[in-house]
């Protein structure tokens, strides 16, 4: 998770945060494909951006998505305590993608995310589902804690919205934009030095990546069971969320990204890149 903090030393990464945030908010607010609950939730094409940006801009996309959602709240008139959940949820919406890409063992393509093969698309869709679930559970957990909307109502809605937009729009967007961003030299492994990126052995990376994938989905499932009263015992949505969030943080801390090694192997990034 080191790069989440070290990226603030690089001017281009800081500007990428601002650009990602502004583009995300500028597409999020005016464009919606269709409305699910009037005034409350719609399928929006911008929901594809955090995952797509995350794969290309890494930590800058995570921060940018979080800030972009905050700006959309400010301009959309829904700014309030619930925006905290939106901030953290959208941060992880952009964060999960670059942590999982290349780290899913047999499920990973081992290639750059330029969507030139079926294996890449499969890996991408898996990541889109995990990222969407992570965003959904965090936002729904905070909304439930604040007493705004029950977890079991909000989480599935956000999950479906995000997954639909990210899974359908992500592959063509990456197919068209990834080569251009790579040509400009703005992929996050090209902007950050080795010492600014998290480092971890293969086994730790796999554990962290599968941990994030499994926790996001299990948190969603258990949260729904507890929220609807289908789960026996004294579990609450708040407690499930607390355990889930601590696990997410733990896996986020021990994990590391893989795109830099993939680029090095392809000769697109010098090995041992220093600032």
């Amino acid at each position: 998770m080191r790069e989440v903090f070290t990226m603030w030393r690089d001017t281009r990464m800081i500007l990428l945060v601002a650009v990602v945030a502004a583009v995300y908010a500028a597409i999020l607010l005016p464009f919606k494909v269709f409305t699910i609950l009037p005034g409350l939730t719609s399928v929006r094409p911008a929901n594809a951006f955090p995952v797509v940006f995350g794969l290309m801009f890494g930590p800058a996309a995570a921060w940018g998505s979080a800030i972009g959602n905050l700006i959309a709240d400010i301009f959309g008139g829904t700014f309030g305590p619930g925006s905290l959940g939106g901030f953290v949820g959208n941060f992880f919406f952009g964060f999960v993608g670059y942590k999982l890409w290349g780290n899913l063992g047999p499920l990973s393509s081992g290639e750059e995310p330029n969507m030139r093969s079926i294996r890449q698309v499969v890996e991408y869709v898996l990541i889109a589902v995990a990222s969407s679930a992570m965003c959904a559970v965090i936002i729904a957990w905070v909304a439930d804690l604040l007493g705004l909307v029950p977890f079991s109502v909000l989480a599935p809605i956000i999950m479906v919205n995000n997954t639909l937009a990210a899974a359908v729009l992500g592959p063509p967007l990456l197919y068209l934009t990834y080569p251009r961003i790579k040509d400009i030299g703005f992929l996050y492994p090209e902007l950050l030095a080795d010492e600014e990126l998290s480092a971890a052995g293969a086994s730790r990376r796999y554990v962290a990546a599968y941990g994030l994938l499994v926790v996001s989905l299990v948190w969603l499932g258990v949260g729904l069971l507890v929220g609807t009263g289908a789960a026996p015992g004294t579990l609450t949505v708040g407690l499930v969320g607390l355990v889930g969030f601590v696990l997410v943080l733990a896996f986020a801390i021990i994990g590391a990204e893989r795109l830099s090694a993939i680029l090095e192997r392809a000769g697109a990034r010098p090995a041992g890149r220093n600032r």
Binding site: V17, A18, V19, A21, A22, P30, G64, L70
Partner: peptide, 13 residues
């Protein structure tokens, strides 16, 4: 970053 994003937002819109 927040300030720059707030300034860029209307441009991108």
């Amino acid at each position: 970053a927040v300030g720059t994003a707030l300034r860029l937002f209307p441009t991108f819109l």
